[in-house]
Simulated scan of single mutants.
Amino acid sequence: MKHYLVIAMRRPGFDPAVVAPHLAYLDDLDARGLLAASGPFADGSGGAYVLRGLASLGEAQAVAAADPLALTGSSSLEAREWTLAARGKGQA
């Protein structure tokens, strides 16, 4: 199964009001079985999420472009195909 990493970086003038619609968007992706993981960066500069079950990078880019963070211009979003590597206990 292919995975896609979406990196969202906050732009100057980021409006915190967009966080709730963004989280609702992620909840919808999760309900549709498309969201594998998500979370903010510890420094508050943005966050990332991992998509699964999509046919192509173009489809992942379309999902990222429909995110309220992108639609409002609050953040720049970039989707990349990502090879998810399983690691044993104690490995990075």
Rank of each mutant, 00 (worst) to 15 (best):
M1A: 11
H3Y: 14
H3L: 05
H3I: 02
H3N: 06
V6F: 04
I7V: 15
M9C: 07
R10L: 12
R10A: 13
A17D: 11
V18M: 02
V19S: 05
V19W: 02
A20K: 12
A20Y: 10
P21F: 00
H22W: 00
Y25C: 06
Y25L: 05
L26H: 01
D27P: 02
D27T: 08
D30Q: 12
A31T: 07
R32Y: 00
L34C: 08
A37R: 08
G39T: 02
P40S: 05
F41K: 00
A42Q: 14
G47N: 01
A48F: 10
V50C: 09
R52E: 15
S56A: 13
L57A: 13
E59F: 02
E59S: 04
E59Y: 04
E59A: 13
E59I: 06
A62N: 10
V63W: 04
A64L: 07
A66C: 00
D67E: 14
P68Y: 07
L69P: 02
L71V: 15
L71Q: 15
T72R: 01
S76W: 10
S76K: 12
E78T: 15
A79R: 09
E81F: 01
E81D: 03
W82E: 06
W82K: 07
T83A: 15
A85H: 12
A85W: 10
A85E: 07
R87G: 15
R87S: 15
R87A: 15
G88W: 14
K89D: 11
G90C: 03
